[in-house]
């Protein structure tokens, strides 16, 4: 973590449907983590989780924010959106379940892997959703003492 005493933070506005810029926040997070000397595997897990979360907002919501905070212990990422919300979270967590429209699938997304992928790469995972209002997702990836997920 170099000489940084306080947490390193960043915040990004996400626009629904803005495919051209989708992933910008996650790419930046990845660069920040790499520059901080975070191990490659952990950086990759954080970037993948952030990217899936970012895509969810772009695919489903009107708008949202992605905020991250890096401390010596962990990478914390929270994503809040104004979107349709999730009726049945348990169902949405199932691999292969998707409510994405056909055009999204033709863009290479919406195969129902997003949320399961986020949970798999995160050490803590918390999701709250109000149908008709939006969804909040909070995850942590531990920098020390966490499991070393192999992403296999």
């Amino acid at each position: 973590m170099g000489d940084n005493k306080g947490p390193v933070e960043g915040c990004f506005q996400l626009m629904g449907g803005a495919f051209a810029n989708a992933g910008t926040a996650s790419s930046e997070l990845k660069i920040v983590l790499t520059n901080l000397g975070v191990p490659q595997d952990i950086t990759r897990r954080a970037a993948i989780a952030a990217f899936e979360a970012e895509m969810n907002v772009i695919i489903h919501a009107i708008a949202g924010t992605l905020h991250y905070e890096i401390t010596p212990e962990r990478i914390h990422i929270d994503i809040t959106d104004m979107g349709p919300g999730i009726e049945d979270i348990e169902l949405a967590m199932r691999e292969g379940y998707s409510t994405a429209p056909d055009w999204v699938r033709e863009m290479g997304w919406g195969a129902g892997m997003g949320l399961p992928n986020i949970r798999k790469n995160a050490d803590t995972f918390k999701i709250d959703s109000v149908p008709g209002e939006g969804t909040t997702l909070e995850i942590d990836i531990f920098l020390s003492g966490g499991r070393n997920a192999d992403n296999k």
Binding site: I48, F51, E52, G108, W109, M113, G114, N117, N151
Partner: peptide, 10 residues
């Protein structure tokens, strides 16, 4: 499917 890459590729 890009999530497939994110899920399975090493």
């Amino acid at each position: 499917m890009m999530s497939d890459v994110l899920r399975f590729a090493r």
